[in-house]
């Protein structure tokens, strides 16, 4: 039963090889879908290109279906996988800061790596910016961030538990929401001035 490495079904020395393979898949798909272009990414905020929403939502739903069906067939033990811990304050504030970073910089860390690899100078500069940002954070951690970083710890809850419904019901709702979003966003570009990039 998965996950194979934490369950010690295959050796831990496979860890890094699998990391590399996962990365190649991730990078190939991101670049192939056009995530190496900041103007294509920013399109999601201005309604001229919804590739981010489509890829993002489809990937999350596919993976959620996969993981929870796997659990149902007992192929994977979901109590062994990493669930992001919820520290409400820092998750929210961090998210808002990243939102500004996205709209100003046009990339996020993963996509900037893809952009940099195909020669986007703005993406390389963006990575330099992340480096500086983390360095600044590290230097001022105890002074500025530590308190909010650790504030409002709520464990590592799952969203259907937080909402008090079953996981299946939540996945159904998410699927319907995604289909609606896909359909609506397919109509929007008709009303928005086209942007060539």
């Amino acid at each position: 039963m998965g996950p194979l490495i934490p369950n010690e079904i295959i050796g831990a020395n496979w860890d890094f090889l699998i990391a590399l393979l996962v990365g190649i898949g991730f990078g190939y798909i991101l670049e192939r879908a056009g995530f190496s272009s900041s103007r294509k990414l920013a399109g999601v905020f201005y309604g001229y290109d919804f590739v981010v929403l489509r890829v993002f939502f489809t990937a999350a739903i596919t993976a959620a279906f996969g993981l929870y069906y796997f659990q149902y067939f007992e192929w994977i033990d979901l109590s062994m996988i990493y669930i992001n811990p919820l520290y409400l304050t820092s998750t929210l504030i961090g998210g808002v800061i990243m939102g500004f970073g996205f709209i100003i910089g046009g990339y996020c860390p993963g996509t900037s790596v893809c952009g940099a690899m195909i020669g986007k100078i703005d993406a390389m500069v963006f990575i330099g910016g992340i480096f500086l940002g983390i360095f600044f954070y590290g230097e001022t951690y105890e002074l500025l961030w530590k308190k909010i970083y650790l504030d409002n710890f709520l464990g590592a809850p799952l969203v259907f538990d937080s909402l008090g419904i079953s996981n299946a019901l939540f996945i159904l709702g998410l699927s319907i929401a995604a289909l609606l979003a896909f359909w609506i966003t397919a109509q929007i570009p008709k009303f928005v001035k086209r942007v060539d990039y």
């Binding site: 820092s90 961090g94 970073g101 963006f126 480096f131 600044f136």
Partner: peptide, 24 residues
């Protein structure tokens, strides 16, 4: 703007325990 966005993402991803790929 790219540098500025990068810096913000750097800070935000540390505070938020992950970026768009890892956290969201």
């Amino acid at each position: 703007m790219a540098i500025l966005g990068g810096v913000l993402f750097g800070i935000g991803s540390q505070l938020g325990r992950g970026c768009t790929s890892g956290a969201a």
